[in-house]
Every structure is written in structure tokens, then in C-alpha cells.
């Protein structure tokens, strides 16, 4: 599903450049539940941005769903993001003046789907995350956990190939964190590839495979005990 070969990325800082990713190799198969672990500055956010087509890479190859990603202009990137990827962010990133159901249906709008159908699908996904009764609430009327579940529903709405979650529990307390993680696991059980970025050990523990990143290189890549036992 996601295949990365010798990926390099540097950012210019003034006259110098900061080499953030130093030749990563990573292969994530369809249906995997992977977490990328690393402290801040390890390059994990950069990796997510490249995988999420929010940023380009300098060297190496990146294949998404078998398609080689290179020379993407914004328009193509937008189409691919919409088609293959669902994002979940630490700060939820819901649009504040839209209700839960409107937020969920937004990616479908950019797909060009009709209004009624959008509404129907958005409600289905809200139901899946257990928020059907909150459909007409604005994000400001929802709790943190509820917001993140709306974000999950939004990420799922377009039936993407991969869910990219950037510190999905970073802004949540431990109880709601657990419920969101439970939701991600459930999605994964349905066959979705889930790619979580975190710096919290206990979150990473709940995934099937942990890739540890330090200073732009992968220092370990192993299946968790849970997966090994299963």
C-alpha cells in the first residue's frame, strides 16, 4: 500500500539546510496497523506529510497504492489525497462553523458528490463512530473525544485506502484516548490500513507494528507483542 525507498528530505533553514529524513525504507502492506514512534525532531511529522502528499520529497521513491508519486502539482495531489487518504489530526481540525455532519460530508463535496447522498453517507459514518445524535452540533458544542470521533468519521467518509493519524490522542485525556484508539482498531479490523504517528509508548503499543524513528533514520521496525501473540 505504502512503499518508501531511500527517502530523503531536507528543509532549508536560512543558508543551511536541515537534513530531516536520511534515506528511509518502509513498506506498509494493505490492512496493517502501524505506528511511527519518535521524539520531536525525529522526522516523524515530515514523514507523515510526505506520505500524506502534503509535502514533496527530495530523493528516493514513494509508491502509494502502487502508483509512483513524483512531480505532483497541487491539483493532482488534491485528487489523490481525496481518493486514497483520510487524515486525523491532533487538533482535530474541524471547520468551526460547520456542524458535525457538514464536516464529515466536506471531503465528499470535494469529490463532487450530490448533496443528499453526501448527507446520507456522512450520517452513516457518524453512526459508526457513535455520534449520530450529535450530527447537527457545531464542533464547539462537542467534547474533545467527540470532536476526534467526528474527525475519524470525516477521514473514513471517502473510503480511503489509508488513514493517516497525526498524534490522534495528543489532545485527549486517557479515557477518551482509549476510546479513540478502540475506534481506530475497529476500523483496522474492517480492513483499513491505519498509519499512526505518536510519541506515546502506550498508544504505539496498541498498534500491530511499531516503527521507531530517530534523527531521520529508522532504528527499529518490529511487530508488537499483541500481533505476535495473535
Amino acid at each position: 500500500m505504502i512503499k518508501i525507498e531511500k527517502l530523503h528530505k531536507s528543509y532549508p533553514i536560512g543558508k543551511d539546510s536541515l537534513h530531516v529524513l536520511k534515506g528511509l525504507d518502509l513498506h506498509i502492506k494493505e490492512g496493517e496497523f502501524v505506528s511511527i514512534m519518535g521524539s520531536s525532531g525525529s522526522g516523524k511529522s515530515t514523514l507523515l506529510n510526505i506520505v500524506g502528499l502534503l509535502d514533496g520529497h527530495d530523493e528516493g521513491n514513494y509508491f502509494l497504492n502502487g502508483q509512483k508519486i513524483e512531480n505532483l502539482d497541487e491539483k493532482k495531489a488534491a485528487i489523490l489525497r481525496n481518493k486514497f487518504l483520510g487524515f486525523i489530526f491532533q487538533s482535530f481540525n474541524l471547520i468551526t462553523y460547520k456542524t458535525a455532519v457538514e464536516n464529515v460530508s466536506l471531503p465528499l463535496y470535494y469529490q463532487g458528490m450530490g448533496r443528499k447522498e453526501r448527507q446520507k453517507i456522512a450520517l452513516q459514518y457518524l453512526e459508526k463512530v457513535g455520534l449520530k445524535d450529535r450530527a447537527d452540533h457545531l464542533p464547539s458544542e462537542l467534547s474533545g473525544g467527540e470532536k476526534q470521533r467526528v474527525a475519524v468519521a470525516r477521514a473514513l467518509a471517502t473510503k480511503p485506502k489509508v488513514i493517516l493519524a497525526d498524534e490522534p490522542t495528543g489532545a485527549l485525556d486517557s479515557i477518551t484516548s482509549a476510546s479513540v484508539m478502540e475506534l481506530l482498531k475497529e476500523i483496522n479490523r474492517d480492513g483499513m490500513t491505519v498509519f499512526v504517528i505518536t510519541h506515546e509508548e502506550d498508544i504505539a503499543e496498541q498498534t500491530d507494528r511499531i516503527v521507531r524513528l530517530k534523527d531521520g533514520v529508522i532504528i527499529s521496525d518490529e511487530l508488537t507483542a499483541k500481533k505476535v501473540n495473535a
Binding site: 497541487e74 488534491a78 489525497r81 481525496n82 481540525n93
Partner: peptide
């Protein structure tokens, strides 16, 4: 907001 929209697949 524009960033979110673009992440969700809005073309420029």
C-alpha cells in the same frame, strides 16, 4: 481552514 479543506481534497 483552507489547509483543512485542501487536506480533504479541495483543489487549489
Amino acid at each position: 481552514e483552507i489547509g483543512i479543506r485542501r487536506a480533504l481534497g479541495a483543489k487549489p
